[in-house]
């Protein structure tokens, strides 16, 4: 479904379905092409909502998860995706699908640093 979503957006609108770029484009203010981004984001929220309602999937909250990790993670994900021109969907799904070497390097790097970070947090510091 994720792949089909990206294919549909490219086929109809000629756009790459990269979540971080779609959102950061909204932050830069209206440039005439904000509308489709809003509709994509609204669809994403509703799609997840409909799925979880239909299947009864409850979001597994982590009541004890440190808010500091969420804040630091959010800042780094936002800054990094903006600086690195892409995220999991942009580089990982769409970029790899286009056989882009640049996106392959990007995906390898963020997987490596993510794995190293999770390892450090969980097994060195014993958090979460």
């Amino acid at each position: 479904m994720i792949g089909a979503a990206a294919a549909l957006l490219l086929l109809c609108n000629g756009r790459i379905a990269g979540a971080s770029h779609i959102v950061s484009g909204l932050l830069e203010g209206p440039r005439g092409d904000a509308a489709w981004r809003v509709y994509f984001v609204a669809g994403t929220i509703l799609g997840a909502f409909v799925f979880s309602s239909l299947t009864g999937t409850v979001h597994t909250d982590r009541p004890d998860f440190p808010a500091g990790l969420l804040t630091a993670g959010g800042l780094l994900v936002g800054f990094g995706a903006s600086l690195g021109s892409g995220c999991t969907s942009g580089h990982g799904v769409c970029g790899l699908g286009r056989l882009s070497p640049r996106s392959a390097v990007a995906t390898a790097i963020f997987l490596a640093t993510a794995i190293a970070t999770t390892f450090t947090v969980r097994h060195v510091f014993g958090v979460a």
Binding site: G73, L76, V77, A112, T113, T118
Partner: peptide, 9 residues
């Protein structure tokens, strides 16, 4: 940096 953030949160 993106990966570090993803791995943190």
């Amino acid at each position: 940096l993106f990966g570090v953030g993803w791995g943190l949160a």
